[in-house]
Simulated assay, not measured.
Amino acid sequence: MEFFDPSPENNTGNVAITSDTTPVQDEHPPVGITPPQVLAQEAADGHRGAAWRLMHWIMDNDPRAFTAVASLEDNRLAQHFIEFLALGTWAGKPFTIPIAFRLAHFRTRLRTLFLPESGMDPTRVEQVLLAAVRDKRPAIRETAVHILGLVGSRTATPVLIRALHDPVLVVRVQAIKALGRTHDPAAIPPLFEILHSANERLGSQISQALVSLGSIAVPELLRECNSHNAWLRWQCARVMGELCDQRTLPALVHMLADSDYSVAWMAAKSLVHYGRDSLVPVLQQLVMAETSSWAANAGAYVLHNLYTHDVTLKPYLLPVEQAMHGVSYNIATPNEARKALAKLAADGIVKI
Rank of each mutant, 00 (worst) to 15 (best):
V128R: 03
I349M: 01
H47T: 05
L306T: 09
P94Q: 02
N297T: 07
A51H: 04
Y274H: 09
H183Q: 12
E27Y: 01
S153R: 03
G46N: 06
L150A: 09
V239E: 07
P63R: 09
H273Q: 13
F84K: 07
R124K: 14
L317E: 03
N199Y: 12
T22H: 04
M266R: 13
S197D: 14
V218T: 10
S293M: 10
K343H: 12
P29E: 13
W265E: 14
L39D: 07
L210H: 08
H254F: 12
I147L: 04
V133K: 00
E83K: 05
F95L: 05
T89S: 15
P167M: 05
L249Q: 06
L179S: 05
P94N: 06
I194H: 10
A187C: 08
Q284Y: 02
N305E: 10
L283W: 04
K314M: 12
R338W: 00
F192C: 07
P158T: 11
S227L: 07
I206Q: 07
T308S: 12
F106Q: 08
A139F: 02
A132V: 04
R223N: 13
Q127D: 09
V327Q: 14
N75H: 14
E336A: 08
K93F: 00
T12Y: 06
V125N: 11
G299V: 03
R111Y: 02
R111L: 09
T96Q: 10
I82T: 01
P29T: 08
M120T: 10
C225L: 08
L103A: 12
E9W: 13
H80S: 06
V173K: 06
V171D: 04
V282D: 05
F95Q: 03
M240Y: 05
I97H: 12
A323R: 01
W90L: 06
S270Y: 04
R233E: 01
V31C: 01
A139L: 12
L85W: 06
R276Q: 15
L103K: 15
A187T: 05
A43M: 08
E117D: 13
D45Y: 06
E290I: 02
D347F: 00
A342R: 02
G203M: 05
P29I: 11
Q174W: 00
E27H: 02
L87Y: 00
A65S: 15
V287W: 02
Y307R: 10
V128Y: 04
S259L: 08
E224Y: 06
V302T: 02
F101A: 08
L318Q: 15
P29L: 14
V311S: 15
L87H: 01
L344H: 01
E220A: 15
R111Q: 14
W234K: 14
S204Q: 11
Q174T: 00
S7K: 13
